[in-house]
Computed example of a mutant assay.
Amino acid sequence: MEKRIEVGYFLPCKVAVYEKEDDVYIGLLNPTVLIELLKDDHLTMIAREVESTLKEVVDAAK
């Protein structure tokens, strides 16, 4: 946020956990999609790292 205060609009990263037909689902918006709106290569790189970490967490929860 020190680089671009507008990043605060995208935080925290939303994660949805829900049950449907006896199965549990975990979903999230890809941070890269949101950050690309700011057209800042450095922030996009950071968003890719965050997205990778979030996907690892979701995969580990399965």
Rank of each mutant, 00 (worst) to 15 (best):
I35P: 02
K39M: 10
V24I: 15
K62W: 05
V15S: 03
I26G: 00
I35D: 01
Y25V: 14
L38D: 03
K55F: 01
C13N: 01
N30F: 03
E6C: 00
M45S: 14
R4W: 00
V24Y: 10
E2H: 05
T32V: 12
V24T: 13
I26S: 01
R48W: 02
L29V: 12
L11V: 04
D59G: 04
Y9G: 01
K20W: 03
I5K: 14
T44S: 09
D22S: 12
Y9Q: 11
V7H: 03
E2C: 03
G8E: 01
V7K: 00
E49P: 02
I5Q: 08
E56F: 08
L37N: 09
T32K: 01
Y18A: 13
E21D: 15
K55V: 11
V7E: 00
R48C: 13
E51D: 14
N30C: 05
P12R: 13
V17F: 14
A16P: 00
Y18L: 11
I26L: 06
N30H: 09
I5R: 06
K55C: 08
K62P: 04
E2T: 11
E21M: 02
M1A: 03
D41M: 14
D23G: 07
V58Q: 10
A60D: 08
D22I: 00
Y9D: 08
A60L: 13
D41E: 15
D22N: 10
A16N: 06
V15A: 08
P12Q: 13
M1T: 06
Y9R: 03
K62H: 08
D40H: 04
E2M: 04
